[in-house]
Design a protein around this nucleic acid. Structure first.
Length: 731
DNA sequence: CCGAGCCTTGTTTTT
DNA sequence: CAAGGCTCGG
């Protein structure tokens, strides 16, 4: 028997050895799913069932793809060339670069990131005269994205649109598509949409790829959306050799169009499909598994499965009851301190629902001198200075990219203001040319004559680098560009501290380009840009240094740790506010919690705060997920002190909740985060975090809009919204 | 055209 | 409360 089939349990062996026909592998958390996938790929190759180029394996992150690549190579004892293990997006990007002409695109097309797309949507809204009204760029862009994820093109959307709002969105969508095409650009959704369209409408190309891929494998199938489903459908040949691996309990991307039905209906979609369940969890303790299973069993949309492990029961989950977000951070960091004796920092993670929650933890960790790293949030490539620099590179590669043009034509400042940029855009649209072309021949336009002198240096710079781009190595080119733009000098004079980190970012961007040039002999600027456009923060994350990691629950999917902290367990935060009303969304939140719990091998700490400030509101009800964990698996630690604000109903509480929190006989010295009318009458002495002590001289409004006039000593009279100011009553 | 300061506004998760 | 958009004065 082949070595690749050894050391597998029965279900695993079956999954690896079943190569023909549609196969669904339902893989519970930590059932060695990646091992199965890589073994299966290696098995197909070693049995010579297919050549590497005839295999297609798709994952969701570059990191996972890279790891799979390495593991397949090591299973086979060397490197494997031409094996397509990639993300959906990068597979499509490469496909489209090859086949661009069939779509009327140039192969040097630009990939718009989220920001670029929103900017374009904003431009379109303005152009249609819809600006300032109910049509905001982000929601509109989101609608367009949703449509594309369902494979509804602009035309089709238009046809079925009814009513003012939908028809307006349809107009925005149509213009958006026209403009993005003129920019020779595609957004993330287009990459998938255009690929599916081309495979569907072009017989020859469709046939070519269908006959090329003999075996297709998909990881995280539960997170595929409709377009991705169609993509797979259009790539699977008659052999129907498609193997998907997933766990419906870990489907957490519904908001991005992921359709859980894809995995639930797999057996219907691909007739004759075989289903193999990997139910054994090898890593987590029995207690963790029991807790996770108990919580997830509250969901309706799932296939029944039972995880089991041979590890012992292990420790109970620790539930930390804390006062506030700040207190939570302090208690968690304190715990990390004691845990450090037994668990390395790199094996510990703090998971939260929203990126914004990271701040208090950062502060506390810094104060306690605990090294940490944050994954996600604003990724490197989204930083302003990097985006600016990349906009130059993008424009150099693709002069049709109006969005990049718009971003940098006046950065660094060249005295080209909003008016001039608008003029350029209008003229370019009128004459059906790109903004850059319009700038090139500014002299021909009466409207731009006066600006020609200022546009000239910019245009010359771009032209210079357009010539250089074929010959100069990308890192040298970037370095020269930075020097020409005097970017470092500009950033240095901007702001002492922020400027310094920006300079460092620029430098590490250049270093990244150099590394890419070293490892890719035929590195070109356009392929480099395409690659980094699809790069995320997670992809560069490595658990090497002994640092504690902070990230969102979404980002944590697929990672594992000894000890996991899940913080902010309150109704309205986790589960998120809008999920409270929607059973489907609530189930997704529960799956997210399940993902969080199953990240842990040994220990879990949960925390819930009595009071949490969020945009002037109080979230103060423990998450229902806590109650869904059987009591005997929980150990409660009460850190709460002082007064709790008891909400009167489920969900988020507004300020008036606090009213009942201060009984007339409240002990002195108790810290009140909020006060309402009854506590803030004229004459009371209060303490403000920045203004210090003051006396209330007037009270206006009530509840949400309660405003106070406070006379602060040495500062004077201030009008303050009680809702926002963290006032302490001191007298 | 540019920058300061006012006002509004939003508030999930990300390939 | 913070960040971003927008208006206004230089």
């Amino acid at each position: 028997m082949s070595r690749l089939l050894e050391n597998l349990n029965e279900a695993q062996l079956e999954a690896v050895a079943t190569t023909e026909g549609p196969l669904l592998v339902v893989a519970g958390a930590w059932s060695f799913k990646t091992k199965i996938l890589t073994r299966r790929l290696a098995h197909i190759l070693s049995e010579r069932l297919a050549e590497p180029y005839q295999l297609l394996a798709v994952t969701f992150t570059n990191k996972a793809a890279g790891e799979m690549n390495d593991r397949v190579a090591s299973e086979l004892g060397g490197t494997v060339n031409a094996l397509s293990i990639s993300t959906f997006h990068s597979f499509c990007a490469r496909f489209l670069r090859r086949e661009a002409e069939h779509l009327g695109y140039d192969s040097g097309f630009t990939i718009f990131d989220e920001d670029d797309s929103v900017t374009l949507a904003k431009n379109c809204i303005a152009e249609l005269g819809l600006a300032g009204s109910q049509f905001k760029p982000k929601p509109q862009r989101r609608k367009i994205s949703e449509a594309k994820n369902k494979m509804i093109g602009a035309e089709q959307f238009s046809k079925s649109a009814s009513g003012y709002f939908e028809t307006s969105t349809a107009k925005i969508y149509e213009l958006y598509q026209r403009r993005i095409r003129e920019c020779n650009a595609m957004d993330f959704d287009d990459l998938l949409f255009n690929t599916v369209e081309l495979l569907r409408d072009n017989q020859e190309i469709g046939e070519k790829y269908r006959s090329r891929f003999k075996y297709i494998m998909v990881d995280e199938y539960q997170d595929t959306n409709h377009v991705q489903y169609l993509l797979l459908k259009s790539l699977v040949g008659e052999h129907q050799n498609i193997c998907v691996v997933g766990d419906e309990d870990q489907s957490i991307y519904g908001w991005r169009g992921a359709d859980i039905r894809n995995i639930l209906d797999f057996e219907k979609d691909f007739s004759g499909a075989k289903v193999i369940k990997l139910e054994r969890n090898y890593r987590s303790t029995g207690t963790i598994l029991k807790a996770a299973s108990a919580v997830i069993s509250n969901n309706m949309a799932r296939k029944e499965k039972t995880l089991w492990t041979e590890s012992g029961d292990g420790d109970k989950l620790v539930l930390m009851l804390v006062n506030s977000a700040e207190d939570e951070a302090a208690q968690v960091v304190g715990r990390i301190g004691t845990e450090q004796a037994t668990t390395a920092l790199k094996d510990t993670v703090i998971l939260y629902r929203t990126n914004a929650q990271s701040r208090p933890f950062e502060e506390q960790l810094r104060r306690a001198n605990v090294p940490y790293q944050i994954v996600g949030g604003i990724s490197f490539y989204q930083r302003r200075e990097i985006k600016d620099l990349m906009a130059y590179l993008k424009l150099i590669v693709n002069p049709a990219d109006d969005i990049s043009f718009q971003r940098i034509v006046n950065y660094p400042l060249r005295g080209i203001g909003k008016k001039s940029i608008d003029d350029i855009l209008t003229l370019a649209h009128r004459d059906n040319i790109s903004s850059y072309q319009a700038a090139l021949k500014a002299g021909d336009y009466a409207e731009l004559k006066g600006k020609q002198k200022r546009l000239q240096p910019f245009v010359e710079l771009i032209e210079k680098y357009r010539e250089k781009r074929e010959t100069a190595p990308i890192d040298i080119l970037t370095q020269d560009l930075v020097a020409d733009l005097k970017l470092i000098e500009a950033l240095r004079s901007e702001d002492e501290i922020v400027g310094q980190t920006r300079i460092e970012n620029i430098e590490s961007f250049i270093e990244g380009a150099a590394a890419y040039a070293r490892s890719n002999a035929d590195a070109h600027l356009d392929t480099y840009l395409a690659e980094i456009s699809l790069f995320t923060d997670l992809d560069s994350y490595a658990e090497i240094e002994d640092k504690i990691t902070l990230m969102t629950l979404h980002t944590a999917k697929g990672l594992e740790y000894e000890t996991v902290f899940i913080v902010g367990l309150e109704e309205g935060l986790f589960p998120m506010g809008r999920a409270l009303a929607d059973p489907m969304e609530l189930e997704e939140e529960r799956r997210l919690f399940y993902v969080g719990v199953t990240r842990a091998k040994k220990k879990i700490f949960l925390s819930t705060a009595a009071i949490r400030h969020r945009f002037g509101e109080v979230v103060s009800m423990p998450s229902r997920f806590i109650a869904e964990i059987p009591d005997e698996l929980l150990e409660k630690v009460n850190y709460r002190s002082g007064v709790h604000i008891e909400p009167t109903r489920a969900g988020t509480g507004r300020l008036p909740y606090a009213r009942s929190s201060r009984p007339a006989s409240a002990p002195k010295g108790v810290h009140y985060e909020y006060e309402t009318e009854d506590g803030v009458g004229e004459g009371r002495i209060v303490e403000h975090p920045t203004f210090g002590r003051g006396k209330i001289v007037a009270v206006e409004g009530f509840g949400e809009s309660l405003r106070l006039d406070i006379m602060f000593s040495g500062i004077g009279l201030k009008k303050i919204m009680a809702k926002y100011a963290k006032l302490k009553i001191v007298g």
